[in-house]
Amino acid sequence: MDFLDIRWDMIWNYRDLFIRGIGITLALTVIGYLGGFVLGLFVGMGKLSKKKWIYYPSKYYVDFFRGTPLLVQILLIHLALIPGIFGHSLGYFVSGVLALVLNSAAYNAEIIRAGIQSIEKGQMEAARSLGMTQNVAMRNIILPQAFRRMVPPLGNELIALLKDSSLVTVIAANDILYAGKVVAGAYARFWEPYITVAILYLCLTFIFGKIISYVEKRFSNSYVPTQRKKMFSTRR
């Protein structure tokens, strides 16, 4: 049972690398997700557009980024796209964030599109019949309702992105997985570094999961704030 002869000291020796890795992973995930959300909002609305010159680019965008592996996208962006535009690399972080933004935007776009489409047609009709323009109605009537329905799938996407951010390690990003690889390389042992990596990801997804379920609870089915609900509990 050689593999049970665990040497945690080597993890401890590289603790700075792991801590830095956690920071990088979080930064990649959070920036990638927020950027992906904003871009996804536009692409998702684009997929609902009746104008063909908006609809088709949005559709092809989603088709491409959902239809190709993230790993390939990362390599394309880091080794081809960015050097192609700037003449040189801008570092793993820029490439990594860009890839995660573009990729998660495609998934978020689908979530956002589905959320908007799930709102009853009558809501838009009522808003329009009150003289609201399409934009005013979308911002004030449709999106606030749609966002509630999007919270659970958007949460899933956040967790998926957190884990997928480990792919950025192929372009030498100093994320959690990278720290594990360094330790593995230094000691030629694999059990300790990779179980550490796994546990760190597990902790992060656990924390994110808690945050998501808190948000989900806040945006539960009822629109009535909880305190008020008690006051009105004697509803007819």
Binding site: G122, Q123, E125, A126, S129, G131, I141, Q145, Y223
Partner: peptide, 21 residues
């Protein structure tokens, strides 16, 4: 058309109130 709709109110069978407000 929005200008016209301002002057034409409509009431629907399914009420279509905005549930989040």
């Amino acid at each position: 058309i929005n200008g016209i709709r301002k002057d034409v109110g409509m009431v629907f069978q399914q009420f279509n109130l905005f549930p989040h407000m």
